[in-house]
């Protein structure tokens, strides 16, 4: 360093500036250090439950206030079930997760250990305060005459469904179609695979989430049929008008299981275990069960729901995918993991 030509000693100012930069960078970090209110819960949920948990969270806050006098705010985050699980793995401070499919909670448990592996045994009914199924939304008057899963592979029918890799709803659609064909073809897995392959050849748009697919179908006017969560189909009815769409309930469909779980590592760290456990228990209460039915989910306790809400949930012959394909680990691996059935089908179908 040529001290004679410039008066500022370069080395000293260099280190000074390093400190300065570090300070500037560190500033926002400390400043934003979470000033957590003592009872604020975060529920990380999947896409179609936005309206549901708005009601549930308000009801729980009121209930908790009445019982304990404490104020608890429940915050919600919604998105595709898989990417929501990813944010929990990467460290979002979720107290509870309410996701679209059991394998996503399994993934959190496996990859981050924040949820114990036996999470399904911790809550009643394997962590399912409510269940749902897949029905079809079609254009008014059902111009393509879609009645059952078999109609979805007709060459002139365009099906809108989300990407099963990212969306829980997309996975239920995929499994429901597979289960239908498996039963119909005398439990022949190859024929069921081929059926699902034919179905996905009729799919012109593959959105990343259930909500994206609904917008594509209802708002953008693409496709003839939208297989979707039962609750989502009725929501479209209410949001876009009953004069534009019909709901078709297929004779058989899948028993869809959107489970809930406590994120044990996070609640212990945040000291919110008491409130978070109460929140999950609240989901099994009569009050919450009635809200589920109101939003077109199938409640665990039918007695708690209003009869007019139950009347909206038609009788369908439901099958459990575990009965056909085994454990959730197997189901996830066989169908949706890298190189699984979905990958093989989209490779073959291009």
């Amino acid at each position: 360093m040529q001290r004679e030509t410039h008066p500022t000693p370069t080395r000293r100012s260099l280190s000074l500036s390093v400190c300065l930069a570090a300070l500037v960078l560190a500033g926002p970090v400390h400043w934003a250090g979470p000033a957590r209110a003592d009872s604020e819960l975060l529920n990380v949920s999947y896409d179609p439950t936005r309206e549901l948990y708005k009601d549930i969270n308000a009801a729980f806050s009121a209930d908790w206030k009445a019982k304990t006098g404490e104020t608890v705010t429940v915050r919600a985050s919604h998105g595709g079930s898989g990417s929501q699980a990813r944010t929990v793995i990467d460290g979002i401070p979720a107290d509870v997760v309410t996701l679209g499919i059991p394998s996503d909670i399994d993934a959190i448990s496996r990859l981050s250990k924040k949820i114990p592996a036996d999470w399904r045994s911790k809550l009643p009914n394997e962590g399912l305060p409510y269940t749902s199924t897949v029905v079809f939304l079609v254009r008014k008057g059902n111009p393509k005459g879609v009645k059952d899963w078999g109609d979805l592979v007709k060459p002139d029918v365009k099906v809108i469904t989300p990407n099963p890799k990212t969306s829980a709803g997309g996975r239920w659609n995929f499994l429901a179609a597979w289960g239908y064909a498996f039963e119909k073809e005398g439990k022949n897995a190859d024929k069921a695979n081929a059926f699902v392959g034919d179905l996905y050849k009729n799919v012109p748009v593959l959105d990343t989430g259930a909500r994206g697919s609904t917008v594509t179908f209802a708002q953008r006017g693409l496709g003839d049929v939208l297989p979707t969560w039962e609750n989502e189909a009725y929501l479209v009815f209410d949001e876009f008008g009953r004069d534009k769409f019909d709901v078709v309930v297929p004779p058989t469909s899948i028993y869809a299981e959107p489970p809930v779980a406590l994120v044990e590592a996070n609640v212990d760290k945040k000291g919110t275990r008491r409130q978070a456990e109460a929140y999950l228990q609240f989901l099994y209460s009569d009050a919450a069960q009635a809200i589920f039915a109101k939003h077109h989910y199938r409640p665990l306790k039918r007695a708690a729901a209003k009869p007019e809400d139950l009347a909206q949930l038609p009788e369908v012959k439901l099958f459990k995918i575990e009965d056909l394909q085994g454990s959730w680990d197997d189901i996830q691996k066989k169908n949706f993991d890298n190189g699984g059935l979905f990958d093989q089908l989209s490779k073959a179908g291009r």
Binding site: H6, S13, S17, A21, L25
Partner: peptide
């Protein structure tokens, strides 16, 4: 060969250090 050509303008170390630190960290 020198890293830097001589100049009477001050602040080279300070600004370059700051630049490199930010660039490096961010």
């Amino acid at each position: 060969r020198r890293f830097r050509q001589p100049s009477v303008i001050p602040g080279f170390g300070l600004t370059l250090g700051y630049t490199l630190t930010c660039l490096g960290l961010i």
